[in-house]
Write a protein that binds this DNA or RNA. Structure first.
Lengths: 141, 141
DNA sequence: TTGACCATGTCAGTAGCCTGACATACTCTG
DNA sequence: CAGAGTATGTCAGGCTACTGACATGGTCAA
């Protein structure tokens, strides 16, 4: 007897959709979208990263990322040179204002994430993370 | 010592993004998008459901759902009356062609889902499903 | 050195989904 | 019975992300 509908994929979508919604709500006062937050977050972890690499890390196309970066540059949260020192990649970095915005956003996002995981024991949290990692591994390539 | 970046939210996004991508690839030969598949899937489970309820179940707005339903109606995969017998809700149902398309799509999607879960034991699969359910529960309202 | 190959950035066009707003139909309370 | 409240469908407009295409710069093998 098999399931008529394996619920894992649906649950994944449901959870991600809700997480995105709550994050969007939380970040609204800062006038940041989830995508913009992800971008700033990754920029702190990898200063000087190229826009294309940033795009891959945040699951959008490089075209979308460049459009988003332009907005963030206009708001002075991010900076990058107009010409590459070498190659074509333009190394992008956080500005001071960008780092400040990220700090504020981080607190709000952490709250949402804690809320999401509040019903899980440490072991269950671990099992969830491990399960997701396995799914990711099985799906890539 | 706390994590600089709690990876669960990111892993959730990563997994969902990959799953969506693989499903999109798998459904391409049928000229169906993931959203359309989700819509058909839900329609089989709940024949006669309203477009608004369908929208909630598939995590889009009712405006988007109505636009999508119009496409599916044009392709004769879905049908619904032009007037409601009672109230405003227009009960939507699968056509025979829609059921056939869903059957074909189901096989492909099941393959993707199995691939995603292929690295997990039954217990780990269970723990993942339970963890996601807990996250969903904690995040709604 | 040269030519294939790949990565990056950019331009143009398209599609999907969203928010905001409104009319309609039912329900429920006073 | 009158009114508010809720749910559904629909129209209009806008924004975001996508695909497709191209030029540029670097790498690597022949």
């Amino acid at each position: 007897m098999v399931n008529t509908a394996p619920p894992v994929g649906y649950a994944l979508k449901h959870a991600q959709s809700l997480l995105h919604l709550r994050m969007e709500e939380a970040l609204k006062p800062l006038h940041l979208t989830v995508s913009q937050y992800s971008c700033l977050f990754r920029l702190r972890r990898e200063p000087g990263i190229s826009a294309a690499a940033l795009a891959r890390a945040t699951f959008v196309t490089r075209q979308s990322m460049n459009a988003m970066l332009q907005q963030l540059i206009d708001r002075d949260l991010v900076a990058r040179p107009s010409r590459a020192r070498t190659g074509r990649a333009l190394p992008t970095v956080l500005t001071v204002a960008g780092a400040d915005a990220l700090d504020a956003a981080q607190k709000l996002v952490d709250g949402v994430e804690q809320r999401m995981l509040s019903g899980l024991s440490m072991a269950a949290n671990d099992a969830l993370a491990r399960g997701l990692a396995s799914c990711i591994n099985s799906l890539e390539e």
